[in-house]
Design a protein around this nucleic acid. Structure first.
Lengths: 109, 109
DNA sequence: TTCGGCTACTTAGCGCTACTATGTACTAGT
DNA sequence: ACTAGTACATAGTAGCGCTAAGTAGCCGAA
């Protein structure tokens, strides 16, 4: 979509990925294709992997290495309790922002 | 709200300010207080002024200097046609992101 | 058997945006 | 004179997504 989307994704992409991980673990390449399937067609692979490194270092996910039939071993990420807490915070922050913007759009000065 | 909000504001704050300018022009200090009144209590003054410089340089607003009774002269910003176009784009980008996230929140993998 | 194409992960460097901190300058009230 | 409120400006910092390039394993077609 362009530069606007790039800037807007800052801060939200992490939440999106955490949300994707709720319920079912996933590995990097898989997450990238999931994002693309959901319409985020322009998200760079490198972005996803860098993000995964970050959330791992923050302790929001547990990581497990599993062999793949089709290539190098996969790093499977699972949301842990701290990650769920962070996701919770994310939704709160998002809701706040979302409500303000909805108000602005419908002319509520 | 904290670091999460700071990151999330990237890209959206510009749209918020443009939206605030639709209908009625405003000057920097006024915009800052408007934002605070709407719940964005932690937005730094310097952030707003820097943003205003940016959107002026991008040609999204027209600027007029007006004397103030209470201090230094005000710089009054008015949304111009190009700014309206940019705001339109912003709302499109926002809608896209907003819809994806709503889908994610309600369990739509 | 070699080559392209898919899978899968990594990393250095860049650009953009919001924040911190500080400074300037004008007015009014005490 | 001093403080508080109004009003704007800016240098430096941190964080995040993107670009670009690389490594590595597997497979099927030429």
């Amino acid at each position: 979509m362009g530069k606007q989307m790039t800037e807007m994704l800052k801060g939200t992409l992490e939440g999106i990925v955490l949300a994707l991980l709720t319920g079912s673990p996933a590995y990097g390449y898989e997450i990238t294709t999931l994002l693309r399937a959901q319409g985020f067609t322009e998200i760079a692979e490198g972005t996803v992997y860098a993000l995964l490194v970050r959330i791992e270092q923050k302790g929001l996910v547990d990581v497990e290495k599993r062999p793949s039939e089709k290539g190098p071993p996969r790093k499977v990420y699972t949301l842990n309790p701290q990650g769920e807490k962070e996701l919770d915070e994310f939704w709160k922050t998002w809701s706040f922002l979302s409500e303000r913007l909805e108000q602005l759009r419908t002319g509520g000065k």
